[in-house]
Structure formats: structure tokens, C-alpha cells
């Protein structure tokens, strides 16, 4: 527990130094913290309720079949669809990924899911098209997804494990 709180302590010290040396910037930093904290505090509770429900109701066999080790190309495509259809900040994707891992999703598909979540949202691609052009948006999204699959394949080859934080009490 103490170790968990160490980064927070360090941050408190950093804010102390900031407040003394640069009060204006310190206040601005606190403002940013307040804004983000509000966002996080509102978003996370329903996300975790939904994760809990998913955990309780979706059978492991189903997820394993569609996203597990034998899911192949269809599993990759499904991960892209899931990642890009879901909306929201990337930190929401991590607990979703944890639930998917618990249900038997392979590392490759988790990486693809996270990459798609972060880089291939349809509404965001439309914004990107407006400011950077259609060609830019399509090529960037395409290349990012290809690299996401590549990274996933490399990580599986290197046997990089996923260490899920807390195994919940056995349900069912």
C-alpha cells in the first residue's frame, strides 16, 4: 500500500515546489488537475459497473472463441471493430482490456484493441479529415492499425505477459 502511494507523495512535493517557485503556473496546474479529476470521477463509476456486469454475464467460452488464441484474422478484425466502436478516453480502455484478458483474449488482440481505441475512432477520423485532409487521415489510420497488429505479433513472439491486477473472487 505504501509503495502504491509513493508516486502521489512525489507529486505532492512537485506541486509544493511549483507553488513556491511559480505560483501562477502552480495555480494553472491545479486548475487542470481539477478539470481532469472531475472528468475521471464522472466517467469511471459507470464504466466499472458495466465491466462488472460483463464479467458476470459474458461466458468465458464466447470471448475465448472469438478473441482467443484460435480466433485468427477474424479475431483481429473484431478487436479493431470493438476498439474503434467504443468511445472515450484511453484510460477507460484499460479496465475493458482487463475484462477481455480475464475472459481469454490473446495478447495480440488486446494490443490491436488498444491501438484501435486510441487511433481509429470514426468520429475522430472525421475531425482529422477536416483539419489534415482525407488522404492523411486514411493513410495514418491504416498504417497505425497495421503497426498495431505488428506490435501485437511481436509481443506474442517475445512472450510478453499481461499481468492483470486483481483476480476477482470466482463468479459462477
Amino acid at each position: 500500500m505504501k509503495k502504491k502511494l509513493r508516486p502521489l507523495l512525489l507529486l505532492a512535493v512537485a506541486y509544493g515546489i511549483l507553488a513556491i517557485t511559480m505560483p501562477v503556473e502552480g495555480l494553472r496546474a491545479l486548475g487542470t488537475v481539477g478539470r481532469y479529476f472531475k472528468e475521471v470521477a464522472f466517467i469511471l463509476p459507470p464504466v466499472f459497473v458495466l465491466m462488472g456486469l460483463l464479467d458476470a454475464w459474458v461466458p468465458k467460452e464466447t470471448v475465448e472463441l472469438h478473441l482467443g488464441h484460435t480466433s485468427g484474422l477474424r479475431g483481429i478484425l473484431l478487436s479493431i471493430v470493438l476498439g474503434s466502436a467504443a468511445a472515450g478516453p484511453i484510460y477507460v480502455a484499460f479496465p475493458v482490456a482487463v475484462t477481455l484478458v480475464r475472459k481469454g483474449t490473446r495478447v495480440l488482440n488486446i494490443v490491436v484493441f488498444l491501438t484501435a481505441w486510441a487511433a481509429a475512432h470514426l468520429p475522430m477520423i472525421i475531425v482529422e479529415m477536416r483539419f489534415l485532409g482525407l488522404t492523411f487521415a486514411l493513410i495514418r489510420t491504416g498504417l497505425t492499425l497495421i503497426m498495431g497488429v505488428t506490435i501485437g505479433v511481436i509481443m506474442e513472439r517475445m512472450a510478453v505477459p499481461i499481468e492483470v491486477a486483481d483476480e476477482p473472487a470466482q463468479v459462477n
Binding site: Y36, V40, M51, W57, F94
Partner: peptide, 22 residues
């Protein structure tokens, strides 16, 4: 059980989340 799992996971995520915000 689902709500307990959700609540526990949320509590676990809180310290790193605060670090992120900071």
C-alpha cells in the same frame, strides 16, 4: 457479485488514476 467486482477494480485503479491526473 458484478457490482462488488466493479467496485473493487475501481478502488484499485484509483491511486494510479490520481497519479495520472497529477
Amino acid at each position: 457479485k458484478a457490482l462488488i467486482i466493479g467496485g473493487k477494480s475501481l478502488l484499485n485503479m484509483l491511486p494510479p488514476m490520481l497519479t495520472l491526473v497529477g
